[in-house]
Amino acid sequence: MLGKLRKYVNEVLPKTVGKYLSKIGLTPNGATLIGFMFAIIAPILAYYRIYVLIPIMIVLSGLMDVVDGAIARATNKTTKFGAYLDSLTDRISDMLFFLALIFAGVNPYLSIIALGFSEVVSYARSKGELLGVKMEGVGLLERSERLILLFIASIFAIFKLNLIANIIILIVAILGVITIYQRSLKIKKELKNQ
């Protein structure tokens, strides 16, 4: 859904932020791991009821997820292991953000359902690409949209407006189902044409 913005970011960031950060010694995998550390911190903060910092951890982790790719493109250091590490830490980070929201009072059952569909969304992309189908930009709920929704839910959780946070998590689950369907249709269509 944010495909046009992503295209712009992928063109501009490597030339600016990516070059600068690579000059100060930050590697793509280093940026990935820094973003992952922010995700690890989120549920710890939530467990200790420091809810106000959860949205910040989501933003910083999401930002580093953009930065790692910018550094890789700026330095021509895109590697298969880097792509694997990025994808792996993204999946675990998603789980950690949902856990943080559960600690902050969001419905755990709804969160588990939304997390499950979110993981299947990512799996559908991965499997589709293994089958040779280009999956970037397919579906309503890619990771960037999911992080935005989790960020918004975490803001409402800070103020104990858990009903609204639960509705947002329900939206994540519903959009996840729709995205799985959209990606499955795309894969079926592309494989039919091969």
Results as ranks from 00 to 15, higher is better:
residue 150 L to V: 04
residue 153 A to P: 00
residue 45 L to E: 02
residue 12 V to H: 09
residue 89 T to C: 07
residue 184 S to E: 06
residue 80 K to R: 11
residue 47 Y to G: 08
residue 191 L to T: 11
residue 77 K to N: 15
residue 138 V to S: 00
residue 15 K to V: 12
residue 22 S to D: 12
residue 45 L to K: 06
residue 104 A to G: 15
residue 142 E to P: 06
residue 176 G to D: 08
residue 16 T to D: 04
residue 104 A to H: 13
residue 103 F to L: 05
residue 51 Y to W: 08
residue 111 S to Q: 02
residue 91 R to T: 02
residue 162 N to H: 12
residue 12 V to C: 04
residue 17 V to I: 14
residue 171 I to E: 07
residue 79 T to A: 09
residue 154 S to C: 09
residue 119 E to K: 10
residue 166 N to K: 11
residue 56 I to K: 11
residue 131 L to V: 01
residue 158 I to M: 07
residue 111 S to C: 03
residue 90 D to C: 02
residue 148 I to P: 13
residue 193 N to D: 14
residue 170 L to R: 01
residue 57 M to G: 02
residue 38 F to L: 01
residue 120 V to C: 11
residue 42 A to S: 15
residue 133 V to L: 10
residue 59 V to A: 12
residue 145 E to W: 01
residue 114 A to E: 05
residue 113 I to A: 13
residue 56 I to M: 11
residue 176 G to S: 12
residue 58 I to R: 00
residue 112 I to V: 15
residue 144 S to P: 00
residue 65 D to E: 10
residue 131 L to I: 01
residue 141 L to F: 06
residue 112 I to W: 14
residue 155 I to P: 10
residue 82 G to D: 02
residue 22 S to H: 11
residue 166 N to A: 07
residue 188 K to W: 14
residue 149 L to Y: 09
residue 111 S to W: 01
residue 156 F to T: 03
residue 160 K to H: 14
residue 50 I to H: 10
residue 148 I to F: 15
residue 15 K to G: 10
residue 8 Y to K: 08
residue 73 R to I: 01
residue 194 Q to C: 09
residue 93 S to Q: 06
residue 13 L to F: 14
residue 173 A to K: 10
residue 85 L to N: 06
residue 61 S to I: 03
residue 113 I to Y: 13
residue 138 V to E: 02
residue 78 T to E: 13
residue 69 G to P: 02
residue 140 L to A: 04
residue 74 A to S: 12
residue 27 T to N: 07
residue 170 L to C: 07
residue 102 I to F: 06
residue 184 S to N: 12
residue 11 E to Q: 13
residue 143 R to E: 08
residue 61 S to H: 01
residue 10 N to A: 07
residue 53 L to W: 10
residue 73 R to W: 05
residue 95 M to H: 00
residue 64 M to R: 02
